[in-house]
């Protein structure tokens, strides 16, 4: 429901803009909808959507796969944190997208370089958020773990993991927006599928209705991912886990 209200506001703004500017550069929303419905399959929009979804999910997965242990180690072992955190801080603000040509040369111009770029961009904020989450676990709980003779595995499963799970979700929410815009840029080169490619393709052909259709799909893809993240969080994070 709240998403429908949000869409209503965006649509209203869009109509106002289209009406005021009245140029083919900003088509009316309804024509974009009709175009999307008509051309979804003929223009292979479903394939573009799926390719983008695949790249972003894989990028997120790879990023978390490395960010979770990094954050855990940095949060738990102060000696290693003194090494890890400065490295994270140094590399975090680098414009990773500027290294795109390097990735293209090293990883090829196919899917891999795109996915790795997304993964690297998400890796840094995710690591830092998870590290902070681990550091904020109350000392009392860790002392409890010692007093009640919990094994390393039990400490991880019963105390650390539930405490950082909400952090993982908030880092996902923070990085989803970034990863979608990076996805767009990475799909503008050497791609034949993906919403980014599709947008640029329509742009070059000055086919604005189609371009807006692809932009709208990218936005809906983002919305869908946000809804999934929220839903998954409700499913696996206890509301009181945020101490």
């Amino acid at each position: 429901m709240k998403y429908l209200r949000g869409m209503g506001v965006v649509l209203l703004l869009w109509y106002v803009a289209a009406f005021l500017i009245s140029s083919p550069v900003i088509p009316f929303p309804h024509s974009v909808f009709i175009y999307t419905l008509d051309q979804f399959v003929p223009q292979e929009m479903h394939l573009h959507l799926l390719y983008s979804l695949y790249r972003i999910l894989l990028g997120l997965f790879i990023a978390l796969f490395f960010a979770i242990p990094t954050g855990m180690i940095a949060g738990r072992v102060p000696a290693l944190d003194r090494l890890i955190s400065p490295v994270l801080y140094l590399l975090y603000p680098l414009p990773k997208i500027a290294f795109l040509p390097v990735f293209m040369v090293l990883l090829g111009i196919g899917d891999l370089s795109k996915i790795i770029l997304i993964a690297i961009i998400i890796y840094f904020p995710a690591s830092v958020t998870i590290r902070d989450g681990v550091k904020e676990i109350p000392f009392e709980f860790l002392q409890l773990a010692v007093a009640y003779h919990l094994s390393r595995k039990q400490v991880l499963k019963d105390i650390i993991w539930p405490a950082i799970l909400p952090r993982i979700f908030s880092s996902l929410r923070i990085t989803l927006g970034i990863s979608l815009s990076v996805l767009f840029i990475s799909e503008t080169y050497a791609a034949s599928y993906g919403l980014g490619y599709s947008i640029m393709n329509y742009w070059v052909m000055a086919q604005y209705t189609g371009m807006y259709a692809a932009i709208m799909l990218l936005s809906l893809l983002g919305l869908l991912l946000y809804i999934i993240v929220d839903w998954a969080e409700r499913l696996c994070v206890h509301p009181r886990a945020n101490m």
Partner: peptide, 12 residues
């Protein structure tokens, strides 16, 4: 050992 605070894990 029983602590001053109950130290129950909020997620369990």
């Amino acid at each position: 050992l029983m602590f001053q605070q109950d130290r129950l894990l909020p997620w369990k």
